[in-house]
Design a protein around this nucleic acid. Structure first.
Lengths: 261, 261
DNA sequence: CCGCAGCCCCCCCAGTTCTGGGGGGCTGTC
DNA sequence: GACAGCCCCCCAGAACTGGGGGGGCTGCGG
């Protein structure tokens, strides 16, 4: 629809995503479209994997903590990426922390001037700059099932050029980021989706209120049924979901989207 | 930038949002821009309020359970909204459940044809249709701090017209929804002290294994500590998260992304 | 019409687990 | 030296588990 010349590349990227068969393919496409928008390099990172989806992850070489890093795409300078991983900067990186509590894209500049950064956080930004990763912005992508990814873009020329490119493509960037995340979700195997069971309305009622911390007796009062009946329904759910207790059932029901507490 | 005639209204809406001083103001603007796109009515709902933000909530009149409902905007038929609230349909509504595990907009039609809906879920869809809320779609907005909102749009004419309007404005709808959510966040007072708490490594360990259905004794075996110590840590978490039991704590920790079970 | 399945409701009980208090003590780090 | 994190212990009462046993209603296929 309404393909402006400047939007052609974005739209065709999004369309191409649905046919992507591998993450590397997504990365290649992403690189070319972002280049076209005037950005030198990028990094797409899974900060928190969505519950119930299997995204590939690995332990970075030289990591001290055995902290898992989830699959990512990046065209940032190799030495910087290696350094970042080996130092577990993921736990420190102020841009990732900002992404947790933001909805809209933000420039790193905004982070850099904040005065509540710790020494370690400032160090990450400074070392990035020393590696040529200087003018940048991050688009947070809050996905379903508590998933969180970020798409960060980095400028190559001066700050002025980056500003212009960023302002010009602000809206496109959000669209790109969302669709990239969606493409990843589609590639990921959805975990034990095979075992989708049918819950009855009453079972859901009991689960919801149990998830809100009510005891069986309280749930009974709320639903105007006896405590025993509540326990009866929860026992059935426990069996259906193949878990060990009503509480385990609640957790699983939440994760798999059977209920919205 | 690059304002197509058809996009003018969307862009001017987004710009106007930053000046909005009240939610009612947002609603009025939203109504007019969505009307312009060919939709009869809409509902913007906070499914889960973001941590650390104070969004207004209330107990709907006639609610049986005292369940809290968060502030929302809606131009849906009044009788339907009243009925929905008084019946606590929020716990049942399949479109809300779908929103939890989706990133991109979806049409209600897709939900309606699924065959794993319970009677109650089907009832909600049917009753909505009887109230003239028939052709619709929902845009999930996964925000920061575990916030989740939905923007649902409803067609007034036939299914064909709705389809056309929906396809035509798919991308704009996402943009609208995100910016609306952002505007709400900006209006809300931030309540940082009510926000995220710090959990220790051991507390997280205990939570994770409890979320997997292990008893305190089993968790103790796994972590090579005593059952009492496990319970001790879980008690502390329960207090920190301000909930009623260790199981409730587990559910909250999962939803809010403290642990990945 | 009957049987059967699915859903919903109620009851019992011995054994297990958790709750919500309390009391310690040992390491580190700021 | 204070404080955070971790670890261990005790107890009475509440809550849950995992079995079992009943019903009743609806809707479907034979």
């Amino acid at each position: 629809m309404s393909p402006l010349p400047s939007e052609n590349s974005v739209e065709s990227y999004v369309e191409a995503l649905s046919g992507a068969r591998s993450t590397a393919e997504i990365g290649a496409k992403l690189e070319s479209v972002l280049k076209g928008m005037g950005f030198k390099s990028f990094a797409y990172v899974h900060v928190r994997p969505p519950l119930g989806k299997k995204l590939r992850s690995f332990v970075p070489p030289g990591s001290r903590s055995g902290n898992q890093v989830h699959e990512f795409l990046s065209t940032l300078p190799g030495p910087w990426v290696d350094h970042y991983l080996s130092q577990d900067y993921g736990d420190l990186d102020p841009t990732l922390q900002a992404a947790v509590s933001r909805l809209m894209p933000f420039q790193w500049r905004e982070i850099g001037v904040r005065n509540d950064l710790s020494n370690g956080q400032r160090k990450v930004l400074n070392e990035a700059r020393d590696h040529g990763v200087k003018d940048g912005a991050t688009i947070p992508i809050h996905g379903p099932d508590s998933g969180l990814s970020t798409l960060s873009i980095v400028g190559g020329g001066g700050e002025r050029e980056f500003q212009d490119a960023y302002q010009r493509s602000y809206r496109d960037l959000v669209w790109l980021a969302i669709n990239t995340h969606e493409a990843f979700l589609n590639l990921a195997e959805s975990a034990p989706d095979l075992g989708r069971v049918r819950l009855t309305d009453r079972e859901r009622d009991c689960l919801v209120w149990t998830a809100r911390g009510k005891t069986a007796w309280e749930v009974g009062q709320i639903l105007s049924i006896s405590e025993e009946t509540v326990l009866f329904h929860l026992k059935n759910v426990t069996r259906k979901l193949g878990v060990f207790s009503k509480h385990h059932a609640v957790v699983k029901a939440v994760i798999q989207g059977y209920i919205v507490p």
